[in-house]
Design a protein around this nucleic acid. Structure first.
Lengths: 196, 196
DNA sequence: GCTTGAATTCAACACATGATGAGTTATAAG
DNA sequence: CTTATAACTCATCATGTGTTGAATTCAAGC
């Protein structure tokens, strides 16, 4: 007898080693990135992972649990920040543009950042999480180390966030298809003004 | 007999002149601004307006109809743009910052812009609408009239959008409570760099 | 080779969503 | 005064949501 659809095989544990948990997280990241926290449903995540919704629940407790777990380290500031701040003071602008483009150019990390941003825009709790993350892990540290006043750091980061939205979310032309070098030439001077 | 709760009075048209349609639109704007397109439900809008969901339907056909109607003229570029472009060329930066702060400072207009932004971030169709609106009504005209290349205009607008998000959506301090003059001093030079 | 525990699905709950069709009351047009 | 049309609610549909409890199948510890 040919078994029906693959994966439609009753309850009970599956034989062999199990990696379902990671698979769920991967799909969760994709969906949170596409739709934001409220837009990505537990059931859609389960469906995408080929798994019963209750299993997602079993692993992560509730929807917020999935989100928190999926968002772990959207980007490690502890890795990225020193890399930026190590640059000579008169190249801070260019270095920052390049770092943003590097992170946002990588599909995996862009997904997490988009998820964070999309969710923060529409969900108050996620907005609070994001604010906390930004202030403590990014603005705080950056200002502390470099001596640049907070307002200027925030203006610089805000600038990059806005440009990333136009480029990656709204896909406005010609911004969306400009080359990395073009963007550096375009944006670095303004950032240098804030950080220099 | 004291009538029960106000507004809980059976079917049929209400006596006197009717302004319900406008009331619904007002509530719709508030909710779209708070939650975005997908987050704001037809039923919540109806509830907020003290009205049956079917009435919303009756007036606007479907949910997208409500949104389109509520978003009419989030900001009139035809009014704002000439005002900005009329400034002397070496004050374009400051004028633009002041214009953005003016529009975003007004609760009514901020609501529409937030609604647009929040919805565009999470809903593909609204993103398309927004892209269309931005390119035709804003980027196109602005570049055309002033002779500033599109990439630079977009960098400038992106900058302001990002800062507005940090200030009004994420409410990051000290950006969120900085005064208008502080912001002009902070941001005008960068914008002047793009537009001058 | 039992037994404990984890992985997995099923069935169901209570509730929210967008949409529809029919019915009721008022205004406006003839 | 009659009639048409607009405002308005009710009940209902089909579907989707997050969550729960029980049942089944496998993998390890003893």
């Amino acid at each position: 007898m040919t078994e029906a659809a693959r994966g439609t095989r009753g309850p009970g544990r599956r034989p062999g080693p199990t990696e379902t948990r990671e698979a769920i997280l991967a799909r969760a990241r994709e969906l949170f990135a596409e739709k934001g926290y409220d837009g990505a449903s537990l059931r859609a995540i389960a469906r995408a992972a080929g798994v019963d919704p209750a299993l997602v629940h079993h692993f992560f407790g509730n929807k917020e649990g999935v989100f928190v777990e999926a968002m772990r380290f959207p980007v490690e500031p502890s890795v990225l920040l020193p890399r930026i701040l190590a640059a000579p003071r008169d190249e801070l602008g260019e270095t920052m543009v390049r770092s943003f483009l590097l992170v946002w150019g990588d599909a995996e990390r862009r997904a997490r950042l988009l998820a964070m941003l999309r969710s923060a825009m529409t969900n108050e709790r996620v907005a609070a999480m994001t604010r906390e993350f930004l202030t403590s892990a990014l603005f705080g540290r950056a200002g502390e180390v470099s001596g640049v006043p907070p307002l200027k750091v925030q203006a610089a980061v805000g600038h990059m966030i806005g440009v990333m939205i136009l480029r990656y979310v709204l896909a406005v032309e010609p911004l969306a298809s400009a080359s990395e070098d073009e963007l550096v030439r375009l944006l670095a001077p303004a950032l240098q003004g804030y950080l220099g």
